[in-house]
């Protein structure tokens, strides 16, 4: 693309964005919707983390959609990259083998992987208490796989196991949602379990449970994606 064609565009976009930036004034109070959330989440859901409360209850439908997005990307990337011949490019495999990771990286990974996995678990189960949750935790969990992939050429991502796990987690999420209809106020309502003591690990109804399922699912999905990209 000739830059001469792009520059006027950037100027125009700059004008558009500039009109936004110049006219934007920082909020001093919460908008009513947000204020309601901040009050409702601790009171009604028993979750200290308002964001998690919104994500896993009020806007859980979004979250479900997001899970579906990741699920589809795992499937789609599998479609795109999974069907290729295993050794279609001898260059490629040779090159991968040519520079194996150093011993330091390999053994470093040995030590770090359980640690990172533990962090992931911590983040997932503390989703309702701190700045974590299923997605963040899932991402960290998948980074274990990334670390293994980077450090160990012989490591093979087990797509079959992962896809079973992600499917099960997905089904459990949907079932949890249906349970919300049956036992509580609606689809994906978290109050099917007791709210428990505010701020404790086991509290806020089904949010930790949902968070764990989400974490498992997201972790599996991202792992599958990482594995597919390894080529």
């Amino acid at each position: 693309m000739p830059r001469a064609a792009v520059i006027p565009l950037l100027v125009a976009l700059g004008v558009v964005f500039g009109s936004v930036a110049i006219n934007y004034s920082e909020r001093t109070v919460l908008p009513p919707l947000a204020e309601a959330y901040v009050e409702m989440v601790p009171r009604e859901l028993g979750a200290p983390n308002v964001i998690t409360g919104i994500l896993l209850n009020y806007r859980a439908f979004d979250t479900l959609g997001e899970v579906a997005v990741l699920f589809m990307v795992a499937a789609g990337v599998g479609l795109l990259l999974g069907g290729r011949a295993k050794t279609d490019d001898p260059d490629e495999t040779q090159r991968t083998a040519a520079v194996p990771p150093s011993e330091i990286v390999r053994h470093g990974a040995d030590i770090l992987v359980p640690l990172v996995a533990l962090f992931a678990a911590y983040i997932v189960v503390h989703g309702h208490l701190g700045p974590g949750g299923g997605f963040q935790g899932g991402a960290v969990a998948a980074s274990c796989i990334l670390l293994l992939v980077l450090a160990k050429p012989e490591y093979r991502v087990k797509f079959a196991q992962l896809s079973v796990m992600e499917s099960l987690a997905g089904l459990l999420i949907v079932l949890l949602g249906v349970a919300g209809i049956v036992f509580a106020g609606g689809f994906l309502d978290n109050r099917i379990l007791p709210l428990g003591e505010f701020g404790a690990l086991f509290s806020a109804g089904a949010i930790p449970l949902l968070s764990v399922f989400l974490g498992a699912k997201v972790g599996c999905e991202l792992s599958v994606i990482i594995g597919r990209f390894r080529a």
Binding site: P31, Y37, E39, P48, V50, T63, F198, G199
Partner: peptide, 29 residues
């Protein structure tokens, strides 16, 4: 500050102290 009820942020003063949780939640998605 972050809309998480913990430490200095309590259920009572959350509305006054917290930032808007909605964009944060949407940002995750």
């Amino acid at each position: 500050t972050a809309p998480i009820v913990d430490g200095p942020v309590t259920v009572a003063n959350a509305a006054a102290r917290a930032v808007d949780p909605v964009p944060s939640a949407l940002a995750v998605t």
